[in-house]
């Protein structure tokens, strides 16, 4: 028990969780509309797409990399699959098709970064444009409406009170959490992000690690893109644009370090919800949409500042470790 408590307190997302709690309490006080069940479910639903897109990105950022193509990839896959649905491809076949395309985009990113050796920032920014261009070609400038109900249900349906899209987000998060925390590949991602050179010396398969992270990222973007399309009951080339950097914000606010090696999907869950709650409460309070982006920016800066301050704190010699010096620990038993 003590171990779990320590883990929570020591974890990077502790401040993020504290921030989210504070925000929830303040919002509940400020607006009676905020604390209704309906609004909570709305927040859950709104946060789900962002969360799915950010979950895979978390793995890439833990390797010390970056993927700026998440938004464009999700839109591309949404567009392609909408076209497939239009020509009568069954709904059951859509998810495998989407995941396959996602894996291909991820493999391209992984190839550019780990084999060619381009900086991830540049490589994925370029991929972003390539993929976006392909969506425009696929859509030929048009917007597709009216998708089959069996498909749109995934975006708009409910299971009891819970939106289907949130259930899927939960499944994606659990899978990613399991991969990152409970498999040797997940550990390699952390090891590589923490010190790439040491990972190489420790016989980590660098290609498998980096390729895997980018593929996981683009595959979660695929799931997100499909759900986005299902929820809108429409597809257009520009629909992922807003998510390009918002996903990065969700991951970083959730306590995952841009330097790599630290963080995790549990933090990203909190980060995605936090960003959604901020917009939600601002709408409820009637803050004009023109002022909202500034507030969001301010909140991101604050969260990252608090986080890096907390990290600097344990760099310096704490009182505890000074005491350690006085009593030798050699040969001490567990």
């Amino acid at each position: 028990m003590n171990y779990i408590a320590k883990q929570i307190r020591g974890s990077r997302s502790f401040f993020c969780l504290a921030g989210l709690m504070t925000l929830l309490i303040l919002s509940s006080i400020a607006s009676p509309d905020f604390r209704t069940l309906d609004n909570m479910i709305t927040i859950l639903r709104q946060a789900s797409t962002l969360l799915i897109l950010s979950t895979g990105l978390t793995a890439v950022i833990i390797t010390g990399g970056m993927d700026l193509s998440v938004g464009a990839t999700s839109a591309f896959i949404g567009c392609v699959c909408a076209q497939f649905l239009k020509i009568g491809v069954p709904v059951a076949a859509i998810l495998p098709i989407g995941l396959l395309i996602g894996a291909a985009v991820g493999a391209l990113n992984g190839f550019l970064v780990s084999v060619v050796g381009l900086p991830a920032f540049v490589a994925t920014y370029a991929t972003n444009w390539v993929v976006k261009g392909m969506s425009i070609i696929v859509m030929n400038g048009a917007v597709i409406f009216g998708l089959p109900e069996g498909f749109t249900w995934f975006g708009t349906g409910y299971i009891g009170y819970i939106p289907v899209i949130s259930v899927i987000a939960l499944i994606v998060v659990v899978i990613a959490y399991f991969l990152l925390q409970k498999t040797t590949w997940g550990r390699d991602i952390y090891a590589y992000g923490s010190n790439a050179e040491a990972a190489r010396y420790s016989a980590v398969n660098v290609y498998k690690t980096v390729f895997g992270a980018f593929m996981l990222c683009s595959m979660s973007a695929a799931v997100g893109g499909l759900l986005m399309t299902a929820r809108l009951n429409a597809a257009e080339a520009a629909m992922g644009d807003a998510y390009g950097l918002q996903t990065v914000a969700a991951v970083v606010v959730g306590g995952t370090s841009m330097l790599g090696g630290e963080g995790g999907v549990s933090g990203t869950v909190i980060g995605a919800i936090l960003l959604t709650v901020i917009v939600n409460i601002m709408n409820l309070l009637g803050i004009p949409s023109s002022a909202q982006p500034m507030v969001v920016g301010g909140v991101i800066i604050t969260m990252v500042l608090v986080d890096s301050a907390s990290r600097r704190r344990d760099e310096t010699v704490s009182k505890k470790s000074r005491n350690l010096l006085k009593t030798p620990q050699k040969g001490e038993v567990v």
């Binding site: 040797t184 550990r187 952390y190 090891a191 923490s194 010190n195 050179e197 040491a198 990972a199 010396y201 420790s202 016989a203 980590v204 090696g261 630290e262």
Partner: peptide
């Protein structure tokens, strides 16, 4: 530079090679 992932715990570093 080459031996340790300094941010990672002692445990993960001990297991970095033998995990597999």
């Amino acid at each position: 530079r080459q031996g340790l992932a300094l941010k990672d715990s002692i445990a993960w570093n001990i297991m970095a090679v033998s995990l597999r």
